[in-house]
């Protein structure tokens, strides 16, 4: 559905000196610097996938999304939407995509929501019948029907995002791009949005690409994660695979009856407090059951707890890794 091939994007930025002297100097001469925002990305997204696109601020993920949606022209490389180069055949290719950028709206601020939809209906040449059908589906998922007559400027952020999502789906795109859709939303709206993504994916088979900083979004929605940092891909795979790769260990906390610190050849002791000892061990080396069995042969065990590496740890580690 989407092919990203050998994608690069460079920006030229002009630097300005500090203070009055620097500003005066900049009047006559400006220094240019090249910043490589995206530095060779290659991946493929299949039909019906939900892909989480994550990375820290300034990692190049926004730039990548903007190239994938035809907003930015790549310095080199290409993005194909359903086989069509989106830079060269923008007008044709964007018919297949819907875009929602969390902080911006494509709705007319001053008018009723339905007026904006009416314009989109003309722009995408949507038949009245199809339009009403799509609107019904969207109403059943998001409850957008009651908002149609409300001016956009009077809407809450949650309602506005619902409006934007509907607007992006009116022409039934094959791919939906969401750039930080849950940013600033309350719990109820977040829930509605995640439900929406799952349902359009299930009902219409829409491919969804989203960027987010919200771990809840990732955990609930993304079968596949693409982690980028410094403009290069750090990880690509489903969540459990990435966990397996980045954090192939678990932590076992064991509470003994006495203040003892038994050791194990294949486990590293992380911390000791009162009667609790925390062991870190590689999943490949042994199972938690084996470790418990070995330890209980040394001392009687009162209680145990197993901790998986948290998703935020995974992402933090992935961000910090340098290739």
């Amino acid at each position: 559905m989407i092919t990203v091939r050998d994608l690069y994007k460079e920006y030229r930025v002009t630097e300005r000196g500090r203070g009055l002297g620097g500003t005066l100097k900049a009047l006559f001469k400006q220094e240019e610097k090249i910043i490589k925002a995206v530095n060779g990305l290659d991946f493929y997204v299949g039909k019906g996938e939900i892909v989480g696109f994550i990375g820290p601020n300034g990692s190049g993920k926004s730039t990548t999304i903007k190239m994938m949606t035809g907003i930015l022209a790549p310095t080199s490389g290409e993005v194909l939407i359903d086989g069509r180069n989106i830079t060269r055949y923008r007008k044709e290719a964007v018919r297949d995509i819907g875009v929602v950028f969390g902080q911006r709206t494509q709705l007319n601020w001053d008018l009723r929501l339905e007026e904006s939809f009416e314009l989109l209906r003309h722009i995408y040449r949507i038949e009245k019948k199809d339009y009403r059908e799509t609107l019904e589906v969207m109403d059943s998922i998001l409850g957008v029907g009651e908002l149609l007559n409300k001016p956009v400027r009077q809407m809450s952020l949650g309602q506005r995002v619902k409006g934007d999502l509907t607007a992006a789906m009116l022409h039934s795109p094959k791919v939906l791009f969401l750039d930080e859709p849950t940013i600033g939303l309350d719990v109820g709206s977040k829930y509605a949005l995640r439900k929406f993504i799952k349902e359009i994916n299930a009902i219409k088979g829409t491919t969804v690409i989203l960027t987010t900083h919200d771990l809840g979004d990732i955990q609930e929605l993304c079968e596949r994660l693409i982690i980028i940092n410094g403009g290069v891909m750090m990880e690509d795979g489903n969540l459990s695979e990435i966990v397996e790769r980045i954090a192939p260990y678990r932590t076992l906390a064991v509470e003994y009856y006495d203040a003892v610190v038994p050791e194990h050849a294949k486990a590293e002791i992380l911390s000791v407090s009162d009667n609790v000892v925390r062991y870190k061990f590689m999943k490949a080396d042994m199972t938690a059951a084996e470790l418990i069995r070995d330890l209980s042969e040394l001392y009687p065990i009162k209680d145990v707890g197993i901790e998986e590496a948290g998703i935020d740890d995974i992402i933090r580690i992935a961000y910090e890794m340098k290739k």
Partner: peptide
């Protein structure tokens, strides 16, 4: 502000 226009199938 051109973002919005670029993602639509019009000039």
């Amino acid at each position: 502000e051109f973002d919005r226009f670029l993602t639509r199938p019009l000039s």
